[in-house]
Simulated assay, not measured.
Amino acid sequence: MAEKVYAGKSVSVTDDGYLTDPNQWTKEVAIEIAKEEGIELTDKHFAVIEFIREKTLKGEALTIRTIGKSGLVDTKGFYELFPGAPLKKASRIAGIAKPSSCV
């Protein structure tokens, strides 16, 4: 594990850049992680990120399909918000562990 500084805050991250402690996450940290991914966060991004955090912190496993059925965004919209690897990028920005469904 490594330490990284986001928004002036030192956080613990895995080798892949995922926060090891979701309690270290803040919106400011998310904005800086998103910049690394080439994404500028909007209110829509934050709505999806907060959904992901809420479900994951309750112990629920997430899939792209689950997010597509959330009512916040459809699957196509999810890919548009987080291009390339949406679940992987959104999870990293949300400050949660890398989903087991992501390689």
Rank of each mutant, 00 (worst) to 15 (best):
E28N: 11
K89G: 02
D43G: 10
A61S: 15
V73M: 09
S70T: 13
A30D: 03
A30G: 10
E36I: 10
R53P: 13
R53S: 12
V48C: 04
P83R: 02
R53Q: 13
K88L: 06
E54G: 07
R92G: 02
T42P: 09
A47E: 15
A90S: 10
E50P: 02
F46W: 14
D16V: 04
A94C: 01
G95F: 08
E60A: 12
T20P: 06
K35Q: 13
F46H: 05
L19K: 05
C102H: 04
I93L: 09
F78K: 01
F82E: 00
V48E: 03
L41C: 03
G77L: 01
K44R: 15
L81W: 07
D15M: 03
L19D: 04
I96G: 00
E60K: 14
W25A: 08
C102L: 02
A61M: 14
K55A: 09
I64T: 15
K76P: 00
G59A: 10
F51A: 07
Y79W: 14
H45R: 04
G38V: 08
P86H: 00
K44T: 14
A34E: 09
E32H: 12
L72V: 08
F46V: 06
I39G: 06
K58Q: 15
Y18S: 03
G17P: 02
I33S: 04
I67T: 07
A30S: 14
D43M: 12
T66E: 15
I67M: 08
V29N: 06
E40H: 11
C102V: 15
D43P: 03
E36R: 12
Y18H: 08
G95A: 08
E28G: 06
L19W: 06
T66G: 07
E28L: 12
D16Q: 13
S91P: 01
A97D: 12
P86M: 00
T26W: 09
I31V: 15
E28Y: 05
T75M: 10
S101V: 14
K89D: 02
N23V: 00
I96C: 00
W25K: 10
E28K: 14
I93R: 04
F46G: 03
K35V: 13
I67D: 03
L81C: 09
E50H: 12
G38Q: 09
A34W: 09
F78E: 01
I52V: 15
G95S: 08
T63I: 09
K44W: 11
A30H: 06
G38S: 11
K58I: 02
A97T: 08
G68C: 11
N23R: 08
V48P: 06
P22Q: 01
E37A: 05
L19G: 05
A90Q: 00
I39S: 08
I33C: 05
D74Y: 08
G95D: 04
G59W: 09
L87V: 02
G84M: 05
R92Q: 12
E80F: 02
R92M: 10
E60W: 10
F51W: 14
D74E: 09
D15L: 05
L19T: 05
V29H: 08
P83S: 02
T75Q: 13
K89P: 04
K69W: 11
E37S: 01
I67W: 06
G68N: 11
E54I: 02
S101Q: 02
F82A: 01
E36L: 13
T26P: 11
A61R: 15
G68W: 10
P99Q: 01
T42W: 10
I96E: 00
L81S: 05
L57N: 05
D43F: 11
K76W: 09
K35L: 12
T56N: 12
P99L: 00
